[in-house]
Protein backbone atom coordinates (compact mmCIF):
# COMPACT_ATOMS: atom_id res chain seq x y z
CA UNK A 1 0.00 0.00 0.00
CA UNK A 2 2.80 2.41 0.86
CA UNK A 3 4.42 1.57 -2.49
CA UNK A 4 1.19 2.53 -4.25
CA UNK A 5 0.99 5.76 -2.25
CA UNK A 6 4.57 6.52 -3.23
CA UNK A 7 3.59 5.98 -6.85
CA UNK A 8 0.60 8.29 -6.45
CA UNK A 9 2.83 10.98 -4.99
CA UNK A 10 5.29 10.39 -7.81
CA UNK A 11 2.59 10.77 -10.46
CA UNK A 12 1.05 13.78 -8.74
CA UNK A 13 4.39 15.59 -8.57
CA UNK A 14 4.91 15.00 -12.30
CA UNK A 15 1.39 16.00 -13.25
CA UNK A 16 1.26 19.15 -11.19
CA UNK A 17 4.81 20.17 -12.07
CA UNK A 18 4.10 20.21 -15.80
CA UNK A 19 2.93 23.49 -17.30
CA UNK A 20 0.73 21.75 -19.87
CA UNK A 21 -1.36 20.31 -17.03
CA UNK A 22 -2.66 23.80 -16.22
CA UNK A 23 -3.29 24.92 -19.79
CA UNK A 24 -6.75 23.28 -19.97
CA UNK A 25 -7.86 25.21 -16.88
CA UNK A 26 -6.81 28.43 -18.58
CA UNK A 27 -8.54 27.37 -21.80
CA UNK A 28 -11.75 26.52 -19.92
CA UNK A 29 -11.67 29.91 -18.17
CA UNK A 30 -11.32 31.67 -21.52
CA UNK A 31 -14.08 29.55 -23.05
CA UNK A 32 -16.45 30.35 -20.17
CA UNK A 33 -15.60 34.06 -20.48
CA UNK A 34 -16.41 33.87 -24.20
CA UNK A 35 -19.67 32.07 -23.50
CA UNK A 36 -20.68 34.76 -21.00
CA UNK A 37 -19.86 37.48 -23.54
CA UNK A 38 -21.85 35.70 -26.24
CA UNK A 39 -24.83 35.22 -23.90
CA UNK A 40 -24.78 38.93 -23.13
CA UNK A 41 -24.82 39.88 -26.82
CA UNK A 42 -27.26 37.31 -28.22
CA UNK A 43 -30.98 37.98 -28.16
CA UNK A 44 -31.95 34.27 -28.49
CA UNK A 45 -34.91 35.17 -30.71
CA UNK A 46 -35.02 31.80 -32.43
CA UNK A 47 -34.91 29.93 -29.14
CA UNK A 48 -37.55 32.22 -27.70
CA UNK A 49 -39.78 31.48 -30.67
CA UNK A 50 -39.38 27.71 -30.18
CA UNK A 51 -39.89 27.84 -26.42
CA UNK A 52 -42.96 30.04 -26.78
CA UNK A 53 -44.70 27.11 -28.41
CA UNK A 54 -44.66 25.37 -25.04
CA UNK A 55 -44.31 28.07 -22.43
CA UNK A 56 -45.59 31.54 -21.90
CA UNK A 57 -42.33 33.44 -22.09
CA UNK A 58 -42.04 37.19 -22.65
CA UNK A 59 -38.42 37.67 -23.67
CA UNK A 60 -34.78 36.63 -23.24
CA UNK A 61 -34.74 37.52 -19.56
CA UNK A 62 -37.50 34.98 -18.87
CA UNK A 63 -35.36 31.96 -19.76
CA UNK A 64 -31.70 33.00 -20.07
CA UNK A 65 -30.23 32.59 -16.60
CA UNK A 66 -27.15 31.07 -15.01
CA UNK A 67 -28.55 27.53 -15.10
CA UNK A 68 -29.58 27.89 -18.74
CA UNK A 69 -26.06 29.00 -19.64
CA UNK A 70 -24.41 26.24 -17.63
CA UNK A 71 -26.61 23.44 -18.97
CA UNK A 72 -26.32 24.52 -22.60
CA UNK A 73 -22.57 25.22 -22.46
CA UNK A 74 -21.90 21.81 -20.89
CA UNK A 75 -22.97 20.02 -24.03
CA UNK A 76 -20.17 21.04 -26.43
CA UNK A 77 -17.49 21.41 -23.77
CA UNK A 78 -18.12 18.00 -22.18
CA UNK A 79 -18.36 16.33 -25.58
CA UNK A 80 -15.38 17.94 -27.26
CA UNK A 81 -13.02 19.95 -25.10
CA UNK A 82 -12.67 17.96 -21.90
CA UNK A 83 -12.32 14.62 -23.74
CA UNK A 84 -9.51 16.22 -25.74
CA UNK A 85 -7.71 17.33 -22.56
CA UNK A 86 -8.16 13.93 -20.91
CA UNK A 87 -6.88 12.08 -23.97
CA UNK A 88 -3.83 14.35 -24.24
CA UNK A 89 -3.04 13.79 -20.56
CA UNK A 90 -3.46 10.01 -20.96
CA UNK A 91 -1.18 10.01 -23.99
CA UNK A 92 1.52 11.92 -22.16
CA UNK A 93 1.28 9.72 -19.09
CA UNK A 94 2.42 6.46 -20.66
CA UNK A 95 3.35 6.88 -24.33
CA UNK A 96 4.85 10.31 -23.62
CA UNK A 97 7.01 8.83 -20.91
CA UNK A 98 7.95 5.91 -23.14
CA UNK A 99 9.08 8.35 -25.81
CA UNK A 100 11.08 10.45 -23.33
CA UNK A 101 12.65 7.39 -21.72
CA UNK A 102 11.33 8.15 -18.25
CA UNK A 103 9.06 5.11 -18.38
CA UNK A 104 12.06 2.78 -18.46
CA UNK A 105 13.70 4.91 -15.76
CA UNK A 106 10.69 4.07 -13.55
CA UNK A 107 10.56 0.42 -14.52
CA UNK A 108 14.20 -0.32 -13.73
CA UNK A 109 13.19 0.38 -10.14
CA UNK A 110 11.19 -1.94 -7.88
CA UNK A 111 7.87 -0.76 -9.25
CA UNK A 112 5.02 -3.06 -10.19
CA UNK A 113 3.83 -2.45 -13.72
CA UNK A 114 0.24 -2.98 -12.60
CA UNK A 115 0.60 -0.46 -9.79
CA UNK A 116 2.21 2.00 -12.16
CA UNK A 117 -0.69 1.85 -14.62
CA UNK A 118 -3.28 2.01 -11.84
CA UNK A 119 -1.58 4.98 -10.22
CA UNK A 120 -1.51 6.79 -13.57
CA UNK A 121 -5.19 6.03 -14.03
CA UNK A 122 -5.97 7.25 -10.51
CA UNK A 123 -4.19 10.53 -11.15
CA UNK A 124 -5.86 10.89 -14.53
CA UNK A 125 -9.22 10.32 -12.88
CA UNK A 126 -8.43 13.03 -10.37
CA UNK A 127 -7.41 15.30 -13.21
CA UNK A 128 -10.62 14.60 -15.15
CA UNK A 129 -12.63 15.19 -11.99
CA UNK A 130 -10.85 18.49 -11.42
CA UNK A 131 -11.46 19.58 -15.02
CA UNK A 132 -15.15 18.62 -14.98
CA UNK A 133 -15.96 20.28 -11.69
CA UNK A 134 -13.78 23.30 -12.39
CA UNK A 135 -15.77 23.83 -15.57
CA UNK A 136 -19.07 23.15 -13.87
CA UNK A 137 -18.39 25.53 -10.99
CA UNK A 138 -17.06 28.16 -13.36
CA UNK A 139 -20.13 27.88 -15.59
CA UNK A 140 -22.59 27.99 -12.69
CA UNK A 141 -20.70 30.75 -10.90
CA UNK A 142 -20.20 32.94 -13.96
CA UNK A 143 -23.75 32.19 -15.15
CA UNK A 144 -25.41 33.11 -11.87
CA UNK A 145 -23.22 36.20 -11.39
CA UNK A 146 -24.11 37.47 -14.85
CA UNK A 147 -27.62 36.20 -15.44
CA UNK A 148 -29.03 35.23 -12.04
CA UNK A 149 -31.00 32.05 -11.38
CA UNK A 150 -34.35 30.67 -12.54
CA UNK A 151 -36.09 27.66 -14.06
CA UNK A 152 -34.33 25.83 -16.85
CA UNK A 153 -36.24 26.00 -20.12
CA UNK A 154 -34.76 23.87 -22.88
CA UNK A 155 -35.57 22.12 -26.12
CA UNK A 156 -35.68 18.34 -25.77
CA UNK A 157 -33.72 17.83 -28.97
CA UNK A 158 -30.66 19.59 -27.52
CA UNK A 159 -30.17 16.86 -24.94
CA UNK A 160 -31.29 13.99 -27.17
CA UNK A 161 -34.46 13.44 -25.23
CA UNK A 162 -36.00 11.53 -28.10
CA UNK A 163 -39.08 13.71 -27.88
CA UNK A 164 -40.05 16.89 -29.65
CA UNK A 165 -40.96 20.01 -27.75
CA UNK A 166 -39.48 21.67 -24.73
CA UNK A 167 -38.95 20.96 -21.04
CA UNK A 168 -38.91 23.02 -17.90
CA UNK A 169 -36.97 22.08 -14.78
CA UNK A 170 -37.76 24.04 -11.63
CA UNK A 171 -35.03 26.27 -10.26
CA UNK A 172 -34.91 24.37 -6.98
CA UNK A 173 -33.89 21.15 -8.74
CA UNK A 174 -31.14 22.71 -10.80
CA UNK A 175 -28.18 22.60 -8.38
CA UNK A 176 -28.74 18.88 -7.81
CA UNK A 177 -29.28 18.23 -11.52
CA UNK A 178 -26.09 20.05 -12.45
CA UNK A 179 -24.16 18.18 -9.78
CA UNK A 180 -25.53 14.85 -11.03
CA UNK A 181 -24.67 15.80 -14.62
CA UNK A 182 -21.15 16.71 -13.56
CA UNK A 183 -20.77 13.42 -11.69
CA UNK A 184 -21.99 11.35 -14.62
CA UNK A 185 -19.84 13.32 -17.05
CA UNK A 186 -16.83 12.66 -14.83
CA UNK A 187 -17.60 8.94 -14.84
CA UNK A 188 -17.69 9.14 -18.64
CA UNK A 189 -14.35 10.89 -18.64
CA UNK A 190 -12.95 8.12 -16.42
CA UNK A 191 -13.91 5.60 -19.09
CA UNK A 192 -12.23 7.74 -21.73
CA UNK A 193 -9.21 8.04 -19.44
CA UNK A 194 -9.08 4.24 -19.13
CA UNK A 195 -9.28 3.91 -22.93
CA UNK A 196 -6.59 6.58 -23.24
CA UNK A 197 -4.32 4.72 -20.81
CA UNK A 198 -4.94 1.44 -22.66
CA UNK A 199 -3.96 2.93 -26.02
CA UNK A 200 -1.10 4.88 -24.48
CA UNK A 201 0.26 1.69 -22.91
CA UNK A 202 0.44 0.01 -26.31
CA UNK A 203 2.14 2.65 -28.44
CA UNK A 204 5.47 4.43 -28.20
CA UNK A 205 4.54 7.99 -29.06
CA UNK A 206 1.98 10.31 -27.48
CA UNK A 207 0.92 11.57 -30.91
CA UNK A 208 -0.05 8.02 -31.89
CA UNK A 209 -1.93 7.63 -28.60
CA UNK A 210 -3.91 10.88 -29.15
CA UNK A 211 -4.80 9.99 -32.73
CA UNK A 212 -5.94 6.45 -31.96
CA UNK A 213 -7.92 7.32 -28.82
CA UNK A 214 -9.61 10.34 -30.35
CA UNK A 215 -10.36 8.37 -33.52
CA UNK A 216 -12.11 5.70 -31.47
CA UNK A 217 -14.03 8.33 -29.50
CA UNK A 218 -15.11 10.37 -32.52
CA UNK A 219 -15.92 7.25 -34.56
CA UNK A 220 -18.28 6.16 -31.77
CA UNK A 221 -19.81 9.66 -31.60
CA UNK A 222 -20.42 9.60 -35.36
CA UNK A 223 -21.92 6.10 -35.23
CA UNK A 224 -24.24 7.32 -32.51
CA UNK A 225 -25.54 10.01 -34.83
CA UNK A 226 -26.18 7.70 -37.77
CA UNK A 227 -29.84 6.75 -38.27
CA UNK A 228 -31.11 3.17 -38.56
CA UNK A 229 -28.40 1.63 -36.40
CA UNK A 230 -30.00 2.41 -33.08
CA UNK A 231 -29.57 -1.25 -32.13
CA UNK A 232 -25.87 -0.44 -31.90
CA UNK A 233 -26.18 2.56 -29.60
CA UNK A 234 -26.35 0.64 -26.29
CA UNK A 235 -23.04 -1.04 -27.12
CA UNK A 236 -21.21 2.22 -27.77
CA UNK A 237 -19.48 3.54 -24.67
CA UNK A 238 -20.15 7.11 -25.79
CA UNK A 239 -23.89 6.48 -25.50
CA UNK A 240 -23.41 5.93 -21.80
CA UNK A 241 -20.74 8.62 -21.50
CA UNK A 242 -23.31 11.18 -22.65
CA UNK A 243 -26.06 9.93 -20.36
CA UNK A 244 -25.45 12.96 -18.15
CA UNK A 245 -27.60 14.82 -20.68
CA UNK A 246 -30.61 13.05 -19.18
CA UNK A 247 -30.13 15.12 -16.06
CA UNK A 248 -31.74 17.91 -18.05
CA UNK A 249 -34.82 15.97 -19.11
CA UNK A 250 -38.01 17.15 -17.50
CA UNK A 251 -38.31 13.81 -15.71
CA UNK A 252 -35.30 12.13 -14.18
CA UNK A 253 -34.82 8.65 -15.70
CA UNK A 254 -33.12 7.04 -12.75
CA UNK A 255 -33.31 3.53 -14.22
CA UNK A 256 -31.59 4.47 -17.48
CA UNK A 257 -28.95 6.46 -15.67
CA UNK A 258 -28.27 3.50 -13.39
CA UNK A 259 -27.97 1.14 -16.37
CA UNK A 260 -25.54 3.54 -18.03
CA UNK A 261 -23.54 3.83 -14.83
CA UNK A 262 -23.22 0.04 -14.73
CA UNK A 263 -22.22 0.00 -18.41
CA UNK A 264 -19.62 2.68 -17.80
CA UNK A 265 -18.22 0.78 -14.83
CA UNK A 266 -18.00 -2.30 -17.06
CA UNK A 267 -16.20 -0.44 -19.82
CA UNK A 268 -13.87 1.10 -17.28
CA UNK A 269 -12.94 -2.25 -15.78
CA UNK A 270 -12.53 -3.79 -19.23
CA UNK A 271 -10.30 -1.02 -20.58
CA UNK A 272 -8.24 -0.83 -17.43
CA UNK A 273 -7.81 -4.61 -17.12
CA UNK A 274 -6.71 -4.78 -20.75
CA UNK A 275 -4.27 -1.92 -20.15
CA UNK A 276 -2.75 -3.67 -17.13
CA UNK A 277 -2.54 -7.10 -18.80
CA UNK A 278 -1.04 -5.81 -22.04
CA UNK A 279 1.36 -3.45 -20.29
CA UNK A 280 2.64 -6.25 -18.07
CA UNK A 281 3.45 -8.33 -21.15
CA UNK A 282 4.89 -5.49 -23.15
CA UNK A 283 8.60 -5.20 -23.90
CA UNK A 284 9.88 -1.70 -23.14
CA UNK A 285 12.11 -1.05 -26.12
CA UNK A 286 11.85 2.71 -26.31
Amino acid sequence: MSAFLALLRFERAKLTGRAITWVPFLVLTIVVALIVAVFHRLQFNHMLQLLRAAFNLGGKDDFVNGYYMAAHAMNPVFQMLIPLFVVVAAGLMVAGEAERGTLRACLVRPVSRRALILSKFALLTGYALALCFFLLLLLIGAGILNFGTGNLYTLNVLFHNGNEGASMIPEAEMPMRLLAAGGLATLGMMVLAALGILVSALVDTPAMAFVITLSIYFACLILRLLPDIDWLYPYLFVTHMLRWQQCFFSYFRTGEILVSTIHLAGYLIAFLSAAVLLFEERDIKS
Partner: peptide
Protein backbone atom coordinates in the same frame (compact mmCIF):
# COMPACT_ATOMS: atom_id res chain seq x y z
CA UNK B 1 20.55 1.26 -13.42
CA UNK B 2 20.16 3.25 -16.55
CA UNK B 3 19.80 1.93 -20.06
CA UNK B 4 20.81 3.93 -23.13
CA UNK B 5 20.69 7.46 -21.71
CA UNK B 6 19.51 8.49 -18.26
CA UNK B 7 16.08 10.12 -18.58
CA UNK B 8 14.53 12.74 -16.35
CA UNK B 9 11.61 15.12 -16.12
CA UNK B 10 13.11 18.23 -17.63
CA UNK B 11 10.66 20.61 -16.01
CA UNK B 12 11.61 19.42 -12.50
CA UNK B 13 14.86 20.23 -10.72
CA UNK B 14 17.67 17.72 -10.47
CA UNK B 15 16.99 17.32 -6.75
CA UNK B 16 13.27 16.80 -7.26
CA UNK B 17 13.99 14.17 -9.91
CA UNK B 18 16.29 12.36 -7.50
CA UNK B 19 13.72 12.55 -4.70
CA UNK B 20 10.98 11.19 -6.96
CA UNK B 21 12.96 8.33 -8.43
CA UNK B 22 14.42 7.42 -5.05
CA UNK B 23 10.92 7.33 -3.57
CA UNK B 24 10.11 4.46 -5.94
CA UNK B 25 12.90 2.35 -4.48
CA UNK B 26 12.06 2.89 -0.84
Amino acid sequence: AFVEAPSFYGYLSGRKNLELFASLSG
